[in-house]
């Protein structure tokens, strides 16, 4: 168990390093973007005089390293600062949206993970059967449609007929059941998007093991195929499966801007794209850090879990 704790500590330290690199990369990239907050805010209406006035007002005239330093020292003290565009504290702006993003990710994961595990195990069990082929082809077709298009089709089928709303309007005092109902379509869209990857990995990881001598042994002992897959293959295949689940969870948190746009869901992705367009660097940075932390933590969790599920890895380290 100690080994695991050491690993967690190491990985967390590396995670902080990752966050630092991310913040530098994002800051650099937004600096390289043509234009700045002042010109983005004024848009077509910008004139040299108003631009200069707005730049001074927003404090954009400092050199880039100074601005990065100011930002970084603020963050280290737990202060994400104020959005320059709206002059609202960033922490306030983000908290509600972060909650929304996580809610949707968990909702989609709660459908997608069990579904893909079951489908993956069944596909491995009945490999090369008609079921396997259909599940595989169906899943592949689902991921080969762009997300917004999947969303449009679902809206056409399920929303125009009046089953589910096509707009997600959240109010703070909403019942959980109402919330689950209004966010069903985005969650279903995301489920369709991530299921294929997890299902295929589950199937592949199990099939990969079926040629191993110990499975051969179990088979010779006359165990039922289901038992072989569930009791012998699946536990050993968990590591890659957990990894792919982690990657997909990270995607559900960080990569769903398109679905947010279609369903008008107030999540972080939309805010980040908006803020990039407006060059509101402090907001972009804050969201990038949240996304990067989610990614780092999920990967860490996956690694810890796969180590725990594999006694050999435990002993070796």
């Amino acid at each position: 168990m100690n080994a695991v704790l050491v690993m967690i500590a190491q990985r967390l330290a590396l995670g902080v390093l990752t966050l630092f690199v991310v913040s530098v990369v994002i800051f650099g990239a937004t600096e390289l973007l043509p234009g700045d907050l002042a010109s983005a805010l004024l848009g077509q209406a910008a004139t040299p005089e108003t631009l200069a006035a707005l730049r001074t007002q927003l404090g954009l005239n400092d050199p880039a390293p100074v601005r990065y330093w100011n930002w970084a020292t603020g963050v280290l003290q737990g202060d994400f600062g104020v959005s320059l565009a709206t002059r609202r504290p960033i922490a306030d702006m983000l908290s509600a949206r972060l909650g929304n993003t996580i809610f949707l990710a968990l909702y989609a994961a709660a459908i997608a993970v069990p579904l893909s595990l079951v489908l993956g195990v069944l596909a491995a069990l009945w490999r090369n059967s008609l079921f396997d082929r259909v599940a595989n082809a169906g899943a592949l077709s689902a991921i080969s449609f762009p997300e917004f298009f999947v969303a449009y089709i679902l809206i056409f089928l399920l929303s125009q007929s009046g089953f589910f709303p096509s707009l997600v309007r959240l109010t703070p005092d909403m019942e959980l059941s109402d919330k689950l109902y209004v966010t069903f379509l985005p969650a279903l869209t995301l489920t369709l998007v991530v299921t294929a990857h997890m299902m295929r990995m589950t199937r592949a990881a199990i099939i990969n093991l079926l040629a191993s001598p110990y499975i051969e042994m179990a088979r010779l002992k006359g165990l039922s195929p289901l038992r072989i897959v569930l009791r012998h293959a699946l536990p050993n295949a968990l590591a890659p499966i957990i990894n792919v689940i982690a990657i997909n969870l990270a995607y559900l948190i960080t990569g769903v801007v398109v679905v947010e746009v279609v369903f008008v869901y107030p999540g972080l992705g939309q805010l980040m794209v908006d803020s990039v367009a407006k060059r509101d660097i402090a907001v972009v940075q804050a969201i990038a850090l949240i996304f990067a932390s989610a990614y780092v933590l999920l990967n860490l969790t996956a690694d810890v879990l796969s180590t725990l599920t594999n006694p050999r890895l435990m002993r070796r380290k």
Partner: peptide
């Protein structure tokens, strides 16, 4: 999104 607007009006 223009399709989302259309759907919102139609529904």
């Amino acid at each position: 999104d223009s399709a989302a607007r259309l759907n919102a009006l139609m529904t």
